[in-house]
Design a protein around this nucleic acid. Sequence first.
DNA 1: TGATTTCCTACCATTATGGTAGTAAAATAT
DNA 2: ATATTTTACTACCATAATGGTAGGAAATCA
Lengths: 134, 134
Amino acid sequence: MRISTKGRYGLVIMIYLAREYNTGRFVSLKEISESEEISLKYLEKIMLNFKDTDYFISSRGSEGGYKLAHSPKEYNLKDIFEKLEGNIEIVSCLNEGVPCLKKNRCVSRILWKDINNLINDYLSTKTLEDLIKR
Amino acid sequence: MRISTKGRYGLVIMIYLAREYNTGRFVSLKEISESEEISLKYLEKIMLNFKDTDYFISSRGSEGGYKLAHSPKEYNLKDIFEKLEGNIEIVSCLNEGVPCLKKNRCVSRILWKDINNLINDYLSTKTLEDLIKR
DNA sequence: TGATTTCCTACCATTATGGTAGTAAAATAT
DNA sequence: ATATTTTACTACCATAATGGTAGGAAATCA
């Protein structure tokens, strides 16, 4: 039950860009890489997870980089993690339509559901703006 | 951010034994294996995670098996998961004494801490008895 | 033109997951 | 006594996920 570096570094990128949102400038991954001491190549790979989103405006070449396409308050943390980590249900059977029929296996399903709701409810109510305000 | 089968099947064993607690009989892993359709060998392996606990009374041989050493209400779910999954902190830096000094990495630490507390608080208040009552 | 940076595809080492197999030792049933 | 049952313990292994690295093409800017 761990958040991987994929999720953590992905959020680091988002926070970095959120903090620079007001400046309007493009921030390169190289800058984030050096500031946060995370390999550039790995950051590039993590960005691939956001490929099908409209999260960023990007520009290649010198003085290029990324900036947020929207205000930090438009970025929901639950959405961000779903892009980064895929399905974030803590047990796989939660999103299967058909309940399993094992005797005691699904007694605990209620427990998983509760915990899952706890996390999802929390993340759903938080945005990037909430994070950088603290 | 997934609970593995190790954690899930381990809980299944605990629930099974909790339900048989009043009978006082020994329940074999073979019985649980057949009832829950989980391989016997895998259940044996999962039991190794509880090796250093006083959770069970065991008996070998025919009519042998396991039974809970204490009443189901004495078994805290947080404790059980710590035995099964090891440290259940969702990010590793939470239990390091020294905070990391990276610029934005630890902005999110507050977030991880919050989620971690959410889960731990929930699990700490629940016992095996709560689970089998529902 | 040269440097910079995104964008994209491969590749790879290590670890965790999710098991299986085999055997010894203890306890019980016959 | 012996056969059976069951825990207890060790070793092994296939697959997937994690956490990266490497290389190059394409776009952009100074």
